[in-house]
Write a protein that binds this DNA or RNA. Sequence first.
DNA 1: CTATTTGTTATATTTAATATATAACAGATA
DNA 2: TATCTGTTATATATTAAATATAACAAATAG
Lengths: 133, 133
Amino acid sequence: MFVELDLQSEVPIYTQLVEQIIEGIARGQLKPGDPLPSVRSLAADLGINLHTVNKAYQIMKQEGFLQIHRKQGVVVQSGGMPGVTAEFEAKLERQLKALAAEGVVRGMQEETFVRSCLDVFRQLQGNSGKEDS
Amino acid sequence: MFVELDLQSEVPIYTQLVEQIIEGIARGQLKPGDPLPSVRSLAADLGINLHTVNKAYQIMKQEGFLQIHRKQGVVVQSGGMPGVTAEFEAKLERQLKALAAEGVVRGMQEETFVRSCLDVFRQLQGNSGKEDS
DNA sequence: CTATTTGTTATATTTAATATATAACAGATA
DNA sequence: TATCTGTTATATATTAAATATAACAAATAG
């Protein structure tokens, strides 16, 4: 897989997993119905415990990004991704506020800040919806 | 003070403190040279330990947002706030990427995402430096 | 059917971060 | 000098994160 962990990071491993898999879906590297490695194989591949992988998978299943079958394993949600929920909007605003506040204090220009947001968004969305049939 | 803690939050108390004080500076509620409560009085006020307050102050001193004198106490940086450092840019991009990726997966429109970023930024910057009545 | 692979659950342990509790120390200042 | 400031030093409790084993249950391939 395209996952690369930083074991020294303050960000928990299972969080890094969740973020990178979501990023993979956003970039179109993972498409609806695509299979993900089993918890055991991915754990062995990354040199971590299977429960850490399972925790990430569980979170993404709970949020609706993944589907899990018994023997088939884990696949990317094929029945429509979750939309922009109130919870996500709240999380977005809360985290944006902290980032924007520090930007303001550091004297960042409004255009610079918004430009960064736009660039990051486009770089992710750029390769996404190419599979549209 | 304007600080309100959520003791049940997964966000550490000292982090909530740092974020809310930075937000206060961004909003102009705290201006360069303004004094902050002593670690003991703020801790008592919030019903937390003085070391938790001290940890937040230390982080903000280390980053250059606060100045600390022996008896005078803690004041907002009056010798110029830290600018947009490479570290901040890295943090900004890393967190924005996670937020934008989830937004993309959830089918959020580019304009909607950028609009949120702009709105949040403006709401903070709007009042900076105008609090002088 | 049988064996294998899947996610799942259960228990236990280790490590690190968070937060608290006391106490004492050292500089500035009224 | 007395007092308030941040600071440092220990110690402790709690929780989250991660690991380690083991076993279970469902789906599937042979």
